[in-house]
Design a protein around this nucleic acid. Structure first.
Lengths: 351, 351
DNA sequence: CTGTTAGCGCATTCAT
DNA sequence: ATGAATGCGCTAACAG
């Protein structure tokens, strides 16, 4: 076989003896030509191996590509392995697919040089999580009138989607604190100004309030603690930089290997991944859950529910968050900010 | 603020009193103009908010977009939630990122009408898994000289990446059968001609040999069974259509709820997801692992190793599979087919 | 209902 | 080292 080059619309038109407009209309606007001609064009196109208008030329001409870019705060490699991010993407993909759009993955972590290139092809952007490097996002904002939706953080006056982090954390901590505790520990996620995997001391500065979701979660924990007359300062805190087992494990091992007199009997974790790692390491050490150690998570990922003991956690519907973001970026939903509800899920790790 | 429209290269050139070629060269070919002029252009560009050449126009002109499309056999919504597919994507993204390319997600399940549109924008394709609808893939093949890499199945004479499915399955079954078993059961993944979630009877036709990875895995199981003088026909088989807890659970419940005299004491599962679901449901029923029931998986996903009991499984490095696919599609690796090795991982579910 | 025309924004010859 | 000209493939006005 020898199809040296994709045939073009113009060539097809010439071959058929019709105008390029008719061929274009045959593919794009059926109502603009007679069914008979359309039929003839489509048939001949198939015969000659013409697969429809070229996406590159079409997008240049129309200004639209039917591509929506998702910009992820972390590296793609990491985000794709993270259950929460994957669920979000899953929800986004569901809606985009249903509306004939496709999904381009970008990372806020790339060399700032490359990104602008590919990004100007997208019709809109969903930006997930606070970027370490805001340069890219600022470009997107200034680049024109393309819709931008921020998820889990605020981006100027762009519409944003949030989850009820503070009330949810308050609720789960309140639940956990109903059972008397002698020592509570909090395991945070990306909360310190400078990277830290381990115990948070007074030497560590925390990220500013109001910027990150984990800061809101901490506020909820603290409110519930205060309500029990437990001073937040008396509660030990640890920090974790990356929501993976490998990064979580050493920090949790450090906690669980504390002498029994110092080891917490309640761990408030900021993610299910952290909590699940705690469960695994506790099991390995013969620490009984929940008798010796109660554990709460946050996110409600499937892995935490489809195992035993089931995680006590806050369920945020990341898939729905993705669907909503996609509908907003496609203009199917008002471009105002949304705050999604969460649900307290009582498992066996903290009954 | 009022940036009504993104400024164009031509306008910038006019503003500066230089030719469009110089502006273009300032961004693309630094060696083609004096450093002084280049500096001036870049500076003025930044000042006027010109973010570099438009991706749509640039890709039309050059014929290259720096976008690689990954075509997934299943829906995107499903694939993004699947640990194996996510790891593959993770590996792909890692390499693409490092080489300044971006990742476009396509599904082989979309309305065939939409896909061709967006797909012609990509510089190359990685096709993952046997498509239910081969129409799209046939288009990609005939569409020209863009590189295509097939993963986990064969696509005409395109280069393909495979895993040692048959030997790996043989090895794990052989290991499992070292311990005497009274009743072995096999839980397959997408193996029947027509969809089936449940027991496979003689009424079910299986997919043709050599097409799907699960068929190869079954062959490995059967070879090990035959070696123990166990007739494959005497081994009960079940089938599962989708690698999710929700779909796996009812089928495994059916198996585990068989009267003790009929219930298998060894389950050879074709995926870790199936095996993990079996573990969870067995635990719920007080069936002891491995005393009452031994379980093997396939894939080696993290979830199976970072829990207790750890899964006995075959580890395939999906991330490396993705990296290799990406290097091949970028032309950094010979375009010949590859077969990746696997590793037997002995956990507690089948010591 | 159909055909003609004029760019979309850019990279690349080929002159100078 | 720089500038003028051409067209990548297509769609949207418009004219017939």
């Amino acid at each position: 076989m020898s199809s040296p080059r994709r045939i073009t619309l113009k060539e097809l038109a010439a071959e058929l003896g019709v105008s390029t407009a008719s061929v274009s209309n045959a593919f794009n606007r059926p109502d603009q030509l007679s069914p008979a001609l359309r039929e003839r064009i489509l048939e001949e196109a198939k015969r000659l191996g013409y697969r429809g208008p070229d996406a590159k030329a079409r997008s240049l001409r129309t200004g639209r590509s039917r591509i929506i870019a998702v910009v992820l705060a972390e590296t793609l490699t990491y985000s794709l392995k993270d259950a929460v991010a994957s669920e979000l993407l899953s929800g986004i993909a569901e809606v985009l697919d249903a509306h004939g759009h496709t999904l381009l993955l970008l990372s806020g972590r790339q060399d700032a040089s490359q990104v602008p290139g590919s990004s100007s092809i997208a019709d809109g952007f969903i930006v997930y999580g606070l970027m370490a490097n805001m340069a890219l996002v600022e470009e997107l904002q200034s680049a024109g009138h393309k819709p931008i939706v921020a998820v889990d953080f605020d981006l100027g006056d762009q519409p944003a989607i949030h989850v009820d982090n503070e009330p949810a954390s308050y609720a789960i901590a309140q639940h956990a604190l109903k059972t008397p505790t002698s020592r509570t520990g909090i395991v945070n996620l990306r909360l310190t100004e400078t990277p830290c995997n381990g115990r948070i001391t007074s030497a560590h500065a925390l990220l500013p309030t109001g910027q990150t979701i984990t800061r809101s979660r901490l506020a909820g924990f603290h409110r519930a603690l205060a309500e029990q007359d437990i001073s937040p300062d008396s509660v030990a805190m640890w920090n974790i930089e990356e929501n993976t087992y490998e990064v979580c494990a050493p920090v949790l091992a450090e906690i669980l290997d504390l002498p029994a007199s110092e080891r917490p009997d309640l761990l408030l974790c900021m993610s299910d991944r952290i909590a699940l790692t705690a469960v695994t390491l506790a099991e390995q050490r013969g620490i009984r859950i929940p008798e010796d150690l109660r554990i709460t998570g946050f996110d409600g990922i499937e892995e935490g529910q489809y195992r035993s003991p089931r995680l006590t956690t806050v369920q945020q519907d990341s898939t729905e968050k993705g669907r909503l973001a996609a509908r907003m970026v496609l203009g199917l939903e008002s471009a105002s900010s949304h705050r999604l509800p969460t649900k307290l899920v009582l498992g066996e790790t903290c009954p």
